[in-house]
Design a protein around this nucleic acid. Structure first.
Lengths: 334, 334
DNA sequence: ATATATCAGGAAAGCGTTTTCCTTGGAATA
DNA sequence: TATTCCAAGGAAAACGCTTTCCTGATATAT
């Protein structure tokens, strides 16, 4: 026989209402009765059922988190932040790895709705009509983290990707480089592919430097994409002395390609990455890159969500700081 | 007003029992009635509440996963496997990151019990008395993955750490090395610290080679630990030509130290890691290491758990294969 | 002294399902 | 034709809590 609130009520010789009141401090209970109840709870090691509790008060203390890939350290750091913050208010996270597949996103969304999570954190999402409709129907708080989606009306936590890449361009130009190239992310993706290109290219053009279809390539953020793209750039744009990659993995692939092509990094070509994942400072040469606060991103997203779940207001958009971390893969043009 | 099973029942002009039967195929319902119900469900977009369902049938379709660190790629791969498998039977995972803190483990365990998860996967745990008691009280299936704990009576999924490290020793000796050293993990930890030392050292001794307190160091699995430990070994054991590290991160730290000390890898010293994390093949020199199937580990752990939750039997211990991946950090002794 | 407010605690309804136990009408059997 | 079965579907209990509403007793105000 399972121990329930009734067991405790009987043992303590009170009604279950009283037990509930003791557990939740929801109404005063005389000291003497309270002691009897607490004793009964302690001796039986009773734990109230979160399921029953959720049904009764229509709160699950669960938040759903949908991310595209949690092998990616970028996301696991973020989840770390989310989880850390969630713990404070006793929330648990229901983690869903969509593997960037739209059908998974839909399936997971349905599951999370059925599980009646109290809120949702989205991080990389195919914004189809089906999805938008479902998100709209889901009448509980939602926060988006890591990317912007103008078609979605939810609070967002991001960094300023355009400004960050402008900074990179200015930094490289400041080092005396005149022939800049870029390996950008895919077009129309949600991982800031366009934004990061946008900023970089605009500064290069503003300085009247060389820019055209042969000065950049597109990659899918993987090491091998960086490698391939760099190989092409070496061919098409041999004057290049500085290369900016839209994430660190591609940057490392690019460095590999440059080495193989006999171009020394940083002596002949400076390379800059983006994200500052762990490997960036371990690799040799250690990678100059744009650092963004992933853990904090997760923390703030969760904080925002908790505010919303408490019925409070939040800013529509939080922009977190980024900074360039200078390491051994860049050097003043000699 | 919320849409519930009652709404559907009214719309279709049937009792809620019938609606439930249609949704679960739990009893035959005439084709005509079934259609009315399904129509009502479709037009209202009704989703039954998982909470209410859980309360009624005493199953949550949730499994708890407690891991010590999910920034570690070793664990995120495993979670990937767990999650992938869980999806098949419609289970969701409740992820708990204990950050290796015993109090967190206890707190999470309590939470998971309250949430009435249907099963538990443990991966790295401080086996205190409190914890053991709680685990015993939790009367639902538990599977342990990644480490062995003789004091716990639960099914386990692991690799043969002792054999793996024996293989490494034999491999290095086979390459002609006579002066082997090791950077081992902490004593008494659950991440195979002792086991990995055990196997390696026994083979070295069996071959009558040099072994003593100056031929190995202890590290906490981080890059900087590997670096420091290697520095000491270079001092204390300058004849060393082969170094085995209990994980890849320490191996990379060690290579850094060796380079700085002017010892070329692999020409003067061969280095072997353990785990084959992503960085191992990206680093230069790429790292010879022991590969273990993390994703599969997670998958199998979850499969076992699902069997148990279905009341089926499972093996007490599953041992997964490992293999040495030979890369550029090792070389025949010249 | 009487009327009113305050307080602790119990009874019962409600949360949204599933499932057991009935009822009913028609088909199959005697 | 009378009896037995069976299938479809409804009523109600159950799951384990929270919360509203009520009661009776004690304290306060008149």
């Amino acid at each position: 026989m399972r121990i329930t609130i009734n067991t405790i009520a009987e043992m303590a010789g009170v009604s279950k209402s009283t037990v509930s009141r003791v557990m939740n401090n929801s109404k005063p209970v005389s000291a003497e009765v309270k002691k009897r109840v607490l004793d009964a709870i302690a001796t039986t090691n009773f734990k109230p059922s979160a399921v029953a509790r959720s049904l009764a008060n229509q709160k699950t203390k669960l938040v759903g988190v949908i991310i595209p890939d949690f092998s990616n350290p970028v996301f696991s750091d973020m989840i770390n932040g989310i989880e850390k913050q969630a713990q404070i208010d006793g929330y648990n996270i229901l983690l869903c790895n969509s593997r960037s597949k739209e059908e998974s996103e839909i399936t997971f969304l349905d599951i999370l709705i059925e599980k009646e999570v109290d809120g949702l954190i989205l991080s990389g999402f195919h914004t189809s009509n089906t999805l938008c409709k479902k998100l709209a129907e889901f009448s509980k708080p939602i926060v988006i983290v890591g990317y912007e989606d103008p078609s979605l009306p939810f609070p967002t936590v991001i960094i300023d990707n355009v400004q960050a890449t402008k900074d990179v361009a200015n930094y490289l130009i400041g080092l005396g480089h005149q022939h800049l190239a870029m390996i950008r992310g895919p077009l129309f993706d949600h991982y800031a592919g366009d934004l990061r290109y946008e900023g970089f290219q605009s500064v290069v053009k503003d300085h009247g430097l060389h820019w055209g279809s042969h000065t950049y390539e597109v990659g899918q953020y993987k090491t091998k994409d960086g490698y391939k793209a760099a190989m092409k750039l070496i061919q098409n744009y041999p004057e290049m002395t500085a290369l900016f990659c839209a994430n660190d993995e591609m940057a490392i692939g690019a460095i590999k390609a440059l080495k193989e092509a006999g171009k020394k990094v940083p002596h002949e070509v400076s390379v800059v990455g983006f994200d500052d994942i762990n490997i960036a400072h371990i690799y040799e040469p250690s990678l100059t890159t744009v650092q963004q606060p992933f853990v904090q991103k997760g923390e703030i997203a969760m904080t925002q969500l908790m505010r919303l779940m408490n019925g409070e207001e939040t800013e529509k958009k939080v922009i977190l700081p980024h900074r360039i971390v200078e390491r051994d893969s860049t050097k003043r043009k000699s």
